[in-house]
């Protein structure tokens, strides 16, 4: 598994229209400017494609920051 910093920068690159510099592990992803429900789907797809981890709706409901997502991926990785 990559480091939290690399995970954050790879994920930030997936968010078109959002300046990657504004995304850090502590970023509450729902508070990102221009955030829409589409970005939740981008997170799900990114994690699935790159780490073979399927997030569920509860994972998303219970997470706030990019680090929360990273920790879930770590715990679920095969």
């Amino acid at each position: 598994m990559v480091s939290i910093e690399e995970f954050t920068s790879l994920l930030a690159a997936e968010f078109e229209d959002i300046d990657p510099q504004t995304i850090t592990p502590a970023t509450n992803y729902r508070e990102i400017k221009n955030w829409s429900s589409m970005y939740a789907l981008i997170i799900i797809a990114f994690v699935d494609a790159n780490y073979d981890v399927q997030l569920n709706a509860d994972n998303l409901k219970n997470s706030q920051t990019i680090k929360d997502i990273y920790d879930i991926v770590l715990s679920k990785q095969p």
């Binding site: 429900s37 799900i44 797809a45 399927q54 709706a57």
Partner: peptide
């Protein structure tokens, strides 16, 4: 429609 749930279902 709960779009996130539908997306999760389809991708899985």
């Amino acid at each position: 429609m709960q779009s996130t749930e539908i997306f999760l279902f389809a991708v899985k």
